[in-house]
């Protein structure tokens, strides 16, 4: 029953998103949409997915959109172009999908093809073959390790893409000025800053817990990476970019992101050199199960490194660009009167 309630709420939020003109509200609603769908995933037993969706849909993507809105303005133009052809197209596509649902196995039925072919092996044999309780991690990190490798490369590509679009050579001369602006701005959030300073070690600790706990419960490299990056971003938001930049500098972060991808690939290469197929962890050690454990441990680390560093790269470049724009505007304002 709870799933129907959640779906109805999702529908309400989606309709509200169409109608809203204020982009700030739209972005917040899309965050809520992410959170609601994460709750739905929990109701559907997909705890790992829920964890990720909560961190990404409700967290990182909302945050990034908010940063962008501060640069682009928050109101949407009232005129919609081509609403009727769009409606027609969407209705046709929707009808086709509804038509397609008519022959689907019913919701939750245990005898659907998805539950009787391929999947049973994961459920029945993964304990003997891989030796960890979380089946999703087994599939993700071993049975379909290559998909996860691809996923890591996608996120790496996004990081490089953002760098290619937004990065520029920094002008060191107005660094001081930015620091001054930051100081005046951040003086106000004294309480939040102190609380954050106290919380930060715990957030980082939690990230490590999630990193290592992925074998037994929901969690793993990706979620840990997001949490780690969130901690750094929180620090940067409250103490200013330039302070955060002292702690974490760009070339270093880029190096980490590349190392993550390389580490993941090297796990595959080592198993290949040891006489197995690419990503065959059984060949990493004399004992197959130990090999699987070692392989999964290493690739989870690789994922954590790349994800954390890419999210930091993306956020820093967004914020950097904004800072540069603002300082350009300030210079412009000083010159014009």
């Amino acid at each position: 029953m709870i799933d129907i309630v959640l779906l109805t709420l999702l529908l309400a939020v989606a309709i509200a998103i169409i109608r809203m003109k204020d982009l700030f509200a739209v972005v917040m609603l899309s965050g809520i949409y992410g959170l609601l769908s994460a709750s739905f995933f929990v109701a559907m037993d997909a705890v790992d997915v829920a964890f990720t969706e909560a961190a990404v849909g409700a967290g990182i993507s909302t945050l990034l959109m908010l940063v962008v809105i501060t640069m682009t303005g928050r109101s949407e133009n009232t005129t919609r172009h081509k609403p009727f052809p769009a409606l027609l197209l969407v209705v046709i596509t929707g009808c086709l999908l509804i038509y397609g649902t008519l022959d689907m196995p019913y919701f939750g039925s245990a005898d659907a093809p998805v539950h009787s072919h391929v999947a049973p092996r994961y459920i029945n044999d993964s304990m003997q073959e891989i030796g960890i309780p979380n089946i999703v991690t087994s599939i993700l990190a071993s049975y379909r390790a290559f998909d996860t490798f691809g996923e890591l490369v996608v996120i790496f590509t996004a990081g490089i893409g953002v760098l290619a679009l937004l990065s520029s050579v920094r002008r060191p001369d107005n660094g001081d000025k930015i620091v001054c602006i930051n100081y005046s701005m951040h003086e106000q959030h004294l309480v939040v800053r102190i609380v954050t300073k106290m919380l930060l070690p715990f957030i980082l600790l939690f990230a490590l817990y999630v990193q290592f706990h992925g074998d037994f419960g929901p969690g793993g490299g990706f979620q840990a990476g997001v949490i780690f990056a969130a901690a750094i971003i929180l620090y940067a938001m409250l103490f200013g970019l330039s302070t955060a930049r002292i702690v974490i500098n760009q070339p270093f972060i880029q190096l980490i992101s590349a190392t993550g991808v390389l580490l993941y690939g090297c796990v595959g290469l080592v198993s290949l050199l040891n006489g197995g197929n690419f990503f065959d962890y059984n060949f990493l050690s004399n004992d197959a199960i130990t090999g699987q454990h070692l392989g999964i441990f290493l690739i989870e680390w690789a994922v954590g490194c790349t994800v954390a560093s890419v999210i930091i790269i993306i956020f820093f470049n967004f914020a950097d660009y904004r800072e540069r724009q603002q300082s350009n505007e300030n210079e412009h304002n000083q010159e014009s009167p």
């Binding site: 072919h117 391929v118 092996r121 994961y122 071993s142 049975y143 379909r144 390790a145 290559f146 998909d147 197995g276 197929n277 690419f278 990503f279 065959d280 962890y281 059984n282 060949f283």
Partner: peptide
């Protein structure tokens, strides 16, 4: 045919 991860076809990639 090449089985990635050494897993047989429909289960692995």
């Amino acid at each position: 045919s090449y089985e990635l991860g050494g897993w047989q076809a429909p289960w692995g990639i």
